[in-house]
């Protein structure tokens, strides 16, 4: 594999949560990211999947430094080959590097300024970072707009006059126009119909091939994740519980939570029998996480050990990490290569 472009070391993040009832007391801190470490290689796509609220967006925002982490390092290898801790950068240098890393935000509605025309929204990063002629800017915007399936003659309108999927493509166009080295895509194609989704995924792959762009692809859509990823990380309650090359993850998951996720994907076939694992019990509460393995209350395979001991993320197979005490011993069900194909 190529050199790592990003080396995340023991990243932690907690939020202060005030409750009305504790107005006079101390606000509680909720640990949202716990000791996250991974490396990201140049030109690869690492997908992050996991339960809603487990910290995926927070992780993305810590990396692009939309918010500051509580502790840890995000070591970034610049184009010149120097390594800098992204979290310690300030001022000019930070600004210079920031344009290398873009994030497509989960909620396009609140990430697009309502008072700017869509043309200006897409062009803004160019205008802010490069000295370009008006005609050059117009050309670039037109190019990226048509690549993302946006009608160029629509662009003088404001965001409110676009549909949900169109707004999502505006956010994608804005991130891509800079030709960044690393893009964090947070549910970036979730509002698109399958045909446009396919078009955007193909575009992302083409750009990756031509410019070696690296992606962190946060998504809950496992069929897309399977199509786009080199590696996949599964998060649960602020921790990475499984990390593996995509093929290995899908054919042989090594964590029961991953197995449950894969079984719950709705199948596009009205006659198919559903065979999903329903997770029993409550969704865990990050403010008061379960003892031992955080997944144990909902795990069908739990033993006393799971209730008492915290499992470490360990390498079980070549490049395949799992944080389950019984990784490798359980026979978990993945996705068969042609399972979903219809006759």
């Amino acid at each position: 594999m190529s050199k790592p472009i990003l080396d995340v070391v023991s990243l932690n993040k907690s939020f202060e949560v005030k409750s009305k009832k504790t107005l006079w007391g101390k606000p509680t801190r909720v640990q949202v990211l716990q000791d996250i470490s991974f490396q990201l290689y140049e030109g690869e796509t690492l997908s992050i999947v996991g339960e809603s609220g487990c910290g995926k967006t927070t992780l993305g925002r810590c990396i692009v430094k939309g918010i500051s982490a509580s502790s840890g390092e995000v070591n970034y290898m610049t184009e010149e080959g120097d390594t800098v801790d992204f979290l310690k950068l300030k001022g000019k240098e930070a600004k210079k590097l920031r344009k290398d890393i873009q994030m497509i935000f989960q909620d396009p509605y609140s990430s697009l300024s309502p008072r700017m025309s869509v043309f200006d929204i897409i062009a803004e990063p160019l205008v802010a970072n490069f000295k370009l002629k008006k005609s050059e800017i117009e050309e670039k915007v037109a190019e990226i707009a048509s690549q993302t399936g946006l009608n160029v003659s629509y662009l003088r309108r404001y965001p409110h006059a676009f549909s949900g999927g169109q707004r999502q493509r505006i956010a994608i166009a804005r991130a891509l126009i800079m030709q960044p080295r690393l893009i964090v895509c947070d549910e970036a194609v979730s509002a698109l119909d399958v045909s446009i989704q396919a078009q955007i995924i193909n575009l992302l792959k083409d750009l990756q091939e031509s410019f070696k762009i690296t992606y962190i692809f946060i998504s809950h859509d496992l069929s897309i994740v399977q199509n786009i990823s080199d590696r996949v990380a599964v998060m649960h309650l602020g921790k990475v519980v499984e990390l593996a090359p995509s093929e290995a993850m899908f054919s042989r998951p090594l964590h029961p939570y991953t197995e449950a996720l894969m079984s719950a994907v709705p199948q596009p076939d009205p006659e198919r029998k559903k065979d999903r694992i329903i997770l029993e019990g409550e969704v865990p509460n990050p403010a008061n996480p379960p003892s031992g393995c955080h997944f144990h209350p909902r795990c069908a395979y739990r033993t006393d050990k799971c209730v008492q001991q915290v499992p470490e993320l360990r390498e079980v197979d070549n490049g395949h990490f799992s944080a389950c005490h019984y990784a490798g011993e359980l026979n978990l069900k993945g996705v068969q290569a042609n399972e979903a194909k219809r006759a």
Binding site: V194, Q197, A198, I201, D221, L222, S223, I224, Q226, N227, I228, S229, D230, S246, E247, M262, V265, Q267, P268, V335, Q336, A337, N338, E339, A340, K341
Partner: peptide
């Protein structure tokens, strides 16, 4: 439609 079980 992307289908689970497809290949990268």
């Amino acid at each position: 439609m992307p289908r689970l079980g497809g290949e990268k």
